[in-house]
C-alpha cells in the first residue's frame, strides 16, 4: 500500500509521518510537494501537521488553494483515503472536505502534551483496530483546535456516527476539564459522511512506538493498512 504525504511550505510533521509509514508500518511512502498536479499511484494521502503558509489569514486557508488540494479533493471524491492531522485537519475543514471550522483555543494558549481520547466509533477504515469507546492516549500540539460547527452539523455528525475521537478523562468521561481547547462536544476528530476522510487534532504519528511512549497512534495507520488489504482481496 503506497502512502503519499502532502508537503506545504511550513509543514513540520511530514518527516514524522514518513518515518512511521516507512519504519513502523513498513509500507512504501513518498512526499508530494504542494505544487504537484498529481496523486496518481497513491492508495492513501496524509496531510501532516505544521503551520502551512505561516497560518496566514486563518489556519489552512491558503493551503486549501494549493494546486495539490484540487487533486486531493478529486481523490477523496472518488473514495480515496485521506487523513489530515492537526494542521492537516484544519486544511480539510477549510477545503470543505469535512464540516465545521477551527477557532482559537478557548484558553488562548498553545496546548502541547498528551491527552486521553475516546474512540467514539471503530466503524471506519481509520479506527477499526481500536475497541469501541476505548480510551487511548495521544499527544496534541495546537493553538487553534477549538472545533466549531453549528447545531445542525453537530446533529448530523452524531446521527451518521461521524465523530471518531473525543477528548475525555482517564475513565472515558467527556468532561469540560478534559477538553483542552473548548471544542464543541469535546470533538477531537471527525469523519466525512462517506467515511473515507478523517481529520484529527491529536498526533498519531508521535505515539506510534514504545520508544515514544506507546503504540496507540500506530493503530490508526494499521487500521488503514488492514482496510486496504481486505479491499484488495
Amino acid at each position: 500500500m503506497k502512502f503519499g504525504i502532502i508537503v506545504f511550505p511550513g509543514s513540520n510533521c511530514d518527516a514524522d509521518c514518513y518515518h512511521v509509514i516507512d519504519q513502523v508500518l513498513a509500507q512504501p511512502v513518498e512526499y508530494i510537494w504542494h505544487k504537484s498536479n498529481s496523486v496518481k499511484g497513491f492508495d492513501a494521502l496524509i496531510i501532516p501537521g505544521g503551520f502551512s503558509y505561516g497560518d496566514y489569514l486563518r489556519t489552512g486557508a491558503i493551503a486549501r488553494f494549493s494546486p495539490i488540494m484540487q487533486e486531493v479533493t478529486e481523490f477523496a471524491d472518488k473514495g480515496g483515503l485521506v487523513i489530515g492531522i492537526c494542521n492537516g485537519f484544519q486544511i480539510l475543514l477549510e477545503s470543505g472536505l469535512l464540516p465545521g471550522a477551527m477557532l482559537r483555543n478557548d484558553s488562548l494558549q498553545f496546548r502541547c502534551g498528551p491527552v486521553n481520547l475516546k474512540v467514539r466509533t471503530n466503524k471506519s477504515v481509520f479506527t477499526r483496530c481500536f475497541d469501541q469507546n476505548e480510551v487511548i492516549k495521544l499527544p496534541i500540539a495546537h493553538g487553534e483546535g477549538n472545533y466549531f460547527c453549528d447545531q445542525e452539523s453537530l446533529r448530523e455528525l452524531l446521527e451518521f456516527d461521524q465523530i471518531a475521537f473525543t477528548y475525555c478523562d482517564r475513565e472515558g468521561q467527556e468532561t469540560p476539564d478534559s477538553n483542552p481547547n473548548g471544542s464543541r462536544a469535546n470533538i477531537a476528530g471527525i469523519l466525512n459522511r462517506r467515511r473515507n476522510v478523517l481529520g484529527m487534532m491529536p498526533h498519531p504519528e508521535r505515539r506510534a512506538e514504545d520508544l515514544l511512549g506507546g503504540q496507540d497512534g500506530a493503530r490508526v495507520f494499521a487500521s488503514i493498512l488492514q482496510s486496504f488489504e481486505e479491499g484488495c482481496r
Binding site: E94, A101, F148
Partner: peptide, 8 residues
C-alpha cells in the same frame, strides 16, 4: 471564497 470563513 478566501478572506472570510462563512462557518464562523
Amino acid at each position: 471564497r478566501l478572506l472570510a470563513n462563512p462557518v464562523i
